[in-house]
Design a protein around this nucleic acid. Sequence first.
DNA 1: ATGGTAGATAGC
DNA 2: GAATGCTATCTACCAT
Length: 527
Amino acid sequence: MGAFGQRLAHVRPQALGLALLLADAEELPRDLRRDHRRARPAALAIAVKGAPTVVISGEALEDLSPLGPALNGEGAPYAVIHDAHRTLGVLRRFGLEVQRFGCTLTAATLLAEGADGQRDDRELAPLVQDHLGQELTDGLRQGLVPSALERTITPIAAARAELLVPLIRRLVPLLRERRLATIFELECNLIPAVLAMENAGFALDARALQRLVDAWRLERKTAEEPKRISRLDKLISTLGYWPRDYVELDGRIRCRLHPLATDSGRFSCQSPNLQQVPAEHTAPGVRGCFVAPPGRRLVIADYAQIELRVAAHIARCRTLRQVFVDGRDVHRATAAGLARKPEEEVTDRERKLAKAINFGFLFGMGARRFREYAANSYGLELDLRAAEAARDAFFTTFPGIAAWHGKVGALSQRARSEDVTVHTILGRRRRFPAGTFSFNSALNIPVQGTAAEGFKLAMIDLHRELQAIDGQGVLVIHDEYIAEVPEERAEEARGIVQRTMEAAMARVIPSVPIVAEAHIAGSWAEK
DNA sequence: ATGGTAGATAGC
DNA sequence: GAATGCTATCTACCAT
């Protein structure tokens, strides 16, 4: 309990709420989750089966007494809501009774987001001054951009978070009972690392990005090839306004990271979505605009074939596991199985095909779909027979994977008439209500989710380890971690990042060796 | 004018 | 028996 209290001292209330929300995400309507994400800092939700649904917000931190009855299980589900109109609408749609709402943080949110002209509830502004004080209104007058404003709000509200400790105390036994305590604790521990990452932002050479955008606009005028035109349009429309709208006065770009918004446990990212910045092969130069400032370096790290390794563990596939235990090349191993020859004799083309096979068939892709996939992603033309042969070879090479597919496939019978739930290693759940089962999701979510959990454990450790050497994570992209570190300690940091990532994931995936690769760079584009 | 969705395309 | 999955954001389109 004391541990929770300490953590909460660092916690932005909306983030805490999301953690609570996640504790049983499967029980909460997806729309509501999305609404929280968009509206933050707005309402928070706690949903635990068998307990009342509680939605609270910053204001509730000042006055917890109304929560008593709800937490005691007396009375109706209780809600205190700030993002008045939209959140109320969502809650009512789901039949949640709303007994009270306030507007302190809503006002802050509205003003923060109003900077881009999206909001019109300006009459709430005076309340901000009453409740959040001079610091915030000064920030507004100085024309702070929205994300900076939000960071101004955060410490003020977080200072009151300790009041939530009694609430947590009641929640924990319920979480234990549902075997959600582990994942809950993980998400709570993660929050400071995520907040620090959001606050740090990524240094961006905005002028260089602007030059790229200008070049695309110029090319667009004379481009003829439809494919090229649509790509240019996409790039211009998504990246064109980043330099103006997202780069802050300190020359850094900041996104919102959401550890709790997805079914799988991966992060989502928005405003802007830095998790889909075009790679070099799509739009050369873009990642090169994401840089380390003078005196600093980037450490860029990612896990090697993490999904295959996690799948080997979950499926208990001995042959796939053995590939990694031996330190062999997994794509080469598949190619050898397909071509019926030793791994040393595999050609480049065979290995490329094997790579497509490994990623495609692992999560239940069919031969027909695989043809498209191989053609689009790898430039490999196959007829249906070849695709089927590839599929057979994959399952013959890794019989444990075939058995795992069989086991999951067997669930689909039962799933027609009853709920089916799949789990990650640490206990995150995805429930499929009767009739909604998806074979592919049931394969994918435990693997993707378990990988995400190992990565989140790593992020917690990385946050601490990097702090000690004046380093700071700046972005995560599913299996990739980017940190900014002092130039003179870059090599040391590289080792720390690599070892920390490997060790944390290994705690979740004990039966398969984990490999992370890390390098030092001046920009995101450097290999 | 605003709101919701489909499809395409970007990431992993 | 067959079945990749998880996202965000843009444009186009249709409905209110």
